[in-house]
């Protein structure tokens, strides 16, 4: 399946229309699921899906030189677009870019890496975070939550939320790079 998708993307780079239609039929349900989850609005998700496949068609030649698996590349393209749409839709009123310096107080995780043989690396590394922080990272990725929404859900001020999340990202990176 993964090879098939890779081949179909390469065929799209050569402007093979039949390959595009086949790629769409194999992958659109997954991408629509991803986009719908973030946008939470069918009409917007349908428009977004259309734009995403236009990007895929136009940028298929760039796939060969990137480092993702074929399906991952499609999901990244789809998710990026959906996030662009939702961030533009809900511009936040408060400027929260007050230069947090989190690098100084980043702490090394004291837990040992939980070395389960199953599960993906990101899942294992998320398990090393506090449950709440892991939930915030998942919510941001899967649901497309903004800092405002996360702050509201976890009942913390928005700046605290961003500091939290940045610290979580630093811990995650340490785990992921091991």
């Amino acid at each position: 399946m993964s090879d098939d998708i890779g081949n179909l993307i390469s065929q799209c780079a050569l402007k093979n229309r039949a390959a595009f239609t086949q790629l769409y039929s194999l992958t659109s349900a997954k991408l629509f699921g991803v986009v719908l989850r973030i946008l939470n609005n069918r009409a917007e998700a349908e428009d977004a899906l259309q734009e995403i496949y236009v990007k895929i068609w136009n940028n298929a030649d760039k796939f060969a030189v990137n480092q993702y698996s074929p399906m991952s590349w499609l999901v990244v393209v789809a998710r990026n677009h959906a996030i662009d749409v939702i961030r533009a839709r809900k511009p936040i009123a408060v400027d929260i870019d007050d230069a947090f310096d989190v690098s100084d107080d980043s702490k090394t995780p004291e837990q040992e890496a939980i070395n389960t043989s199953e599960g993906k690396r990101i899942d294992r590394c998320l398990q090393e975070l506090d449950e709440q922080k892991a939930l915030a990272v998942r919510g941001a990725y899967v649901e497309g939550y903004s800092y405002d929404e996360l702050a509201e859900r976890f009942s913390v001020p928005i700046n605290t939320m961003r500091t939290w999340l940045r610290r979580s990202l630093i811990s995650l990176r340490e785990c992921l790079e091991q």
């Binding site: 769409y24 349900a29 997954k30 991803v34 496949y53 690396r121 998942r138 899967v142």
Partner: peptide, 27 residues
């Protein structure tokens, strides 16, 4: 590339046929 597998948990949803039709006529 690290985060993308988090999307594995998202269930696929069939998109309406009109999306492909519009895409084909547009592209």
């Amino acid at each position: 590339s690290q985060f993308v597998t988090l999307a594995d948990e998202v269930e696929p949803v069939e998109a309406p046929a009109s999306v492909l039709r519009k895409l084909e006529s547009r592209l």
